[in-house]
């Protein structure tokens, strides 16, 4: 069926197409720019990069000259693993309770647990600093873990909650009618079915903790330095090209992890909700 394209149709496809292309360029371009910049041979950050070398990555790997960055990276990974672990255990249990309860009470409980996602992180970061200090605690990795745990828990509730809504109740009834107790049904039926949702949520929580600025800004200290805060310091002072090398490393690691998680759990579909 041949149809004449009216002016309205033409303008629609032109405008939408152009804006969508611009959106893609803006989303992807910066990532490529960072990767290219990190391979420069010069001492300054500029684009296009001058020459090609891995010298900034070599400097980044140097255990003596990049000791502070290594320490910050270790702290960041440790805090992220512990915070994501805590969030996975407590968040999954809470998501189960919410889905079982349902109704108005379940919905308001869900909204309460999701609150850290929309409340300004900076206000919570400052609140946590004051709270722990007034209670007499000194800055430590444990406090960072607790702070990060609160802000990353919503990711677990979202992904586990989504898997639970897709769970067929008939399977649970079948398990019960075959004589399985609640614990048995949970371990043998529910848990295997929601496992990909739990894994996706744990991964997102881990990445969100690695990325976190608002809480680390207030709860980290010289002894408990965190990677994003150290990178901020490097950007504000000398604009060391190692910032580009750290960024390049983070991009490649995130990309690889994401591909792996996509294969294992269908991550992007789960994030889309």
């Amino acid at each position: 069926m041949a149809r004449r394209h009216s002016a309205g149709e033409l303008s629609y496809y032109l405008v939408i197409g152009a804006l969508a292309t611009l959106a893609l360029v803006i989303l992807v371009g910066p990532v490529l720019v960072v990767l290219a910049t990190s391979l420069t041979d010069s001492r300054t950050i500029r684009f296009p990069p001058q020459g090609f070398s891995f010298r900034w990555y070599e400097l980044l790997l140097d255990p003596v000259r990049s000791r502070q960055i290594h320490r910050a990276a270790e702290n960041t990974i440790w805090v992220a693993a512990m915070a994501a672990g805590l969030a996975t255990v407590l968040g999954t249990a809470a998501a189960l309770a919410i889905s079982r309860a349902g109704g108005r009470l379940g919905r308001s409980l869900d909204a309460f647990f999701m609150a850290p996602l929309v409340l300004p992180g900076l206000a919570f970061g400052l609140a946590a600093l004051m709270y722990f200090t007034i209670l007499g605690f000194r800055p430590s990795l444990e406090l960072l873990i607790l702070g990060h745990f609160i802000v990353v828990t919503p990711f677990l509730l979202r992904t586990v909650g989504a898997s639970l809504t897709q769970l067929d109740p008939a399977l649970l009834d079948a398990s019960a009618s075959l004589g399985a107790g609640r614990t048995m049904t949970f371990r043998r039926v529910t848990l295997p079915l929601i496992a990909p949702g739990i894994a996706a949520g744990a991964f997102l929580a881990f990445m969100a903790s690695v990325d976190n600025v608002p809480v680390s800004l207030f709860l980290s200290s010289a002894r408990t330095d965190m990677l994003p805060i150290r990178m901020w310091g490097m950007m504000e002072s000398t604009l060391d090209v190692r910032v580009a090398a750290v960024s390049g490393t983070l991009i490649v690691v995130a990309f690889v992890l994401m591909l792996v998680m996509e294969r294992l759990t269908g991550l992007t579909r789960r994030m889309r909700g």
């Binding site: 989303l27 992807v28 910066p30 990532v31 720019v33 960072v34 910049t37 950050i45 500029r46 684009f47 990445m207 690695v210 990325d211 600025v213 994003p228 990178m231 901020w232 950007m235 604009l239 910032v243 580009a244 750290v246 960024s247 983070l250 991009i251 995130a254 990309f255 992890l257 994401m258 994030m271």
Partner: peptide, 16 residues
């Protein structure tokens, strides 16, 4: 993808 590359990295990209 950009969501999983740190906010600090993305900020740095825009300085460049």
């Amino acid at each position: 993808m950009p969501l999983l590359t740190s906010v600090v990295v993305r900020t740095f990209a825009w300085i460049v």
